[in-house]
Simulated assay, not measured.
Amino acid sequence: MTEVVETEGLTKFYGKRRGLEDLDLRIHPGEVFGYLGPNGAGKTTTIRLLLDVIRPTSGRMSVLGADPRDAAVRGRIGYLPGELTLEGRERASDYLAFLGAMRGGVPKGRIEALAERLEADLSVPMGKLSKGNRQKVGLIQAFMHEPEFLILDEPTSGLDPLVQQEFLAMVREVRTSGRTVLMSSHVLAEVQDVADRVGIVRGGRLVAVEDVAALREKAVRRVEFHFDAPVPPEAFENLPGVRDLRVEGPSVRCTLDGRPDALIKAAARFTVVHMASAEPDLEEIFLTYYSDEEGRHARAGVQEPA
């Protein structure tokens, strides 16, 4: 099956400044791929290369099995830019109708249904749209022609929490239909709710690509047990993955890396009254990757361009 996105050694320099370097990336059909990293990490550069807005310094790429320079590919993509500019006196509804016609025709009912779901007021002139309403119009134009591939750059910026949830439901529906989403964000909680896999980018380099389930398994958990009587500390010492152990009478607190099997078996030797586990999220996982990568660069004496 042809990959929706395939890059090999994709690199973009702006003069001497690195925007992206040596990106090898595969995005599979029918998945939601979260592309994570802080502002300036290289996420938007990647998207602009895939859309042929800018050209690479070196490397190769394909989108939907074709060269991004092929104009026919663009009609199969829905795109929401990170900074959407909408100006003028034209009403948002007229603007969307115009875009729909340019894309070969989008039923008016489809636009109205999306506007209702996102609580968007399309009667407002474009130049007077609030940030939140502008973002909603941007989402409508990206989704309305039911593209094979959706590229969404910081899609929830300016949206209130209820609308964010509706947007995430729309993303799930795209995946259910067999279509593909690339969702770039530094708001990690929204990605973990819908993504199948995530790529973490830092300083123009891809640090990791993981299944969301695998990332959670690797994550650090804070675990706490309460027993019906004091327990011996040695029963929990030197367990694989267990660190920062504190045993105080009938209470055991620790940090757990990876699978909990050994810790659970140790606790099962005693009568557990209560157990609490703080589930990890991608925020903590990302910060771990970010810190580890920074440390590796520092130890190697690597100096990155500003």
Rank of each mutant, 00 (worst) to 15 (best):
Ser58Asn: 08
Gly59Cys: 12
Arg60Asp: 13
Ser62Cys: 10
Val63Ala: 06
Val63Pro: 00
Val63Ile: 09
Val63Met: 14
Val63Phe: 11
Leu64Asp: 01
Gly65Met: 09
Asp67Trp: 12
Asp67Asn: 14
Pro68Thr: 03
Pro68Tyr: 09
Arg69Tyr: 07
Arg69Asp: 12
Asp70Pro: 06
Asp70Leu: 14
Asp70Gln: 14
Asp70Asn: 15
Asp70Trp: 14
Asp70Phe: 15
Ala71Ile: 13
Ala71Cys: 09
Ala72Cys: 14
Ala72Arg: 15
Val73Ile: 08
Val73Gly: 02
Arg74Lys: 15
Arg74Gln: 12
Gly75Ser: 08
Gly75Phe: 10
Arg76Ala: 09
Ile77Pro: 00
Ile77Met: 06
Ile77Ala: 04
Ile77Lys: 01
Ile77Thr: 00
Gly78Ile: 03
Gly78Ala: 12
Tyr79Trp: 09
Tyr79Ser: 01
Tyr79Ala: 03
Leu80Met: 04
Leu80Asn: 00
Leu80Gly: 02
Leu80Tyr: 03
Pro81Met: 07
Pro81Lys: 03
Pro81Gln: 07
Gly82Leu: 13
Gly82Cys: 06
Gly82Ala: 12
Glu83Leu: 09
Glu83Arg: 10
Glu83Phe: 06
Glu83Val: 07
Leu84Ile: 01
Thr85Asp: 10
Leu86Val: 13
Leu86Ser: 03
Leu86Asn: 02
Glu87Asn: 02
Glu87Cys: 06
Glu87Phe: 07
Gly88Cys: 12
Gly88Pro: 00
Gly88Trp: 13
Gly88Asp: 11
Glu90Gln: 13
Glu90Cys: 12
Arg91Trp: 08
Ala92Pro: 00
Ala92Thr: 04
Ala92Met: 01
Ala92Lys: 01
Ser93Phe: 12
Ser93Val: 14
Asp94Arg: 07
Asp94Lys: 02
Asp94Phe: 06
Tyr95Gly: 01
Leu96Glu: 05
Leu96Ala: 10
Leu96Lys: 00
Phe98Trp: 13
Phe98Met: 13
Phe98Tyr: 15
Leu99Ile: 02
Leu99Asn: 04
Leu99Phe: 09
Gly100Met: 09
Ala101Gln: 15
Met102Arg: 11
Met102His: 08
Met102Trp: 04
Arg103Trp: 06
Arg103Val: 00
Arg103Ile: 00
Gly104Ile: 10
Gly104Trp: 02
Gly104Lys: 06
Gly104Met: 04
Gly104Tyr: 06
Gly105Ile: 02
Gly105Val: 04
Gly105His: 03
Gly105Phe: 07
Val106Ser: 02
Pro107Gly: 13
Pro107Lys: 07
Pro107Asn: 12
Lys108Glu: 15
Gly109Thr: 03
Gly109Trp: 08
Gly109Lys: 05
Gly109Val: 05
Arg110Pro: 05
Ile111Gly: 08
Ile111Met: 15
Ile111Ser: 13
Glu112Lys: 07
Glu112Asn: 06
Ala113Thr: 04
Ala113His: 05
Ala113Gln: 10
Ala113Phe: 08
